[in-house]
């Protein structure tokens, strides 16, 4: 089984009220030095079949039409290896061609 992760972020120019609320809260809680906070969404999609090009294309379609509002949001699609050893997945972000650029 394979997992595909879709990260959705508001486009850089778009106001992010939630991120701003977090940023304003930080100094109140004693956390200094954070100049900006942007908040996004992470979707984890577990696939039944192999992660091939067709599957990635399908997920990009899902992301572009449903998971992200492409008028105001960008998304990135990447594959996460589900290894037995915990932690093995974390280092795999840049490991293969599934790392997709932001879709405009």
């Amino acid at each position: 089984m394979a997992r595909v992760v879709v990260d959705v972020m508001l486009k850089p120019e778009i106001l992010d009220p939630q991120g701003q609320a977090v940023q304003r809260a930080l100094p109140r809680l004693g956390f200094e030095g954070i100049t900006d906070v942007r908040q996004g969404k992470r979707f984890e999609l577990d696939l039944a079949g192999p992660v091939d090009e067709a599957a990635i294309a399908r997920i990009r379609e899902i992301a572009g039409t449903f998971l992200a509002n492409t008028v105001i949001e960008d998304f990135e699609v990447r594959v996460e290896e589900l290894a037995d050893a915990p932690g093995a997945a974390t280092g795999s972000a840049g490991d293969n061609a599934a790392e997709e650029g932001a879709v405009r």
Binding site: L10, K11, E13, I14, L15, D16, P17, Q20, A21, I72
Partner: peptide
């Protein structure tokens, strides 16, 4: 630049 404005009702 996007033509879209995002509102913040709490603001």
């Amino acid at each position: 630049r996007p033509a879209v404005q995002v509102g913040d009702p709490f603001q």
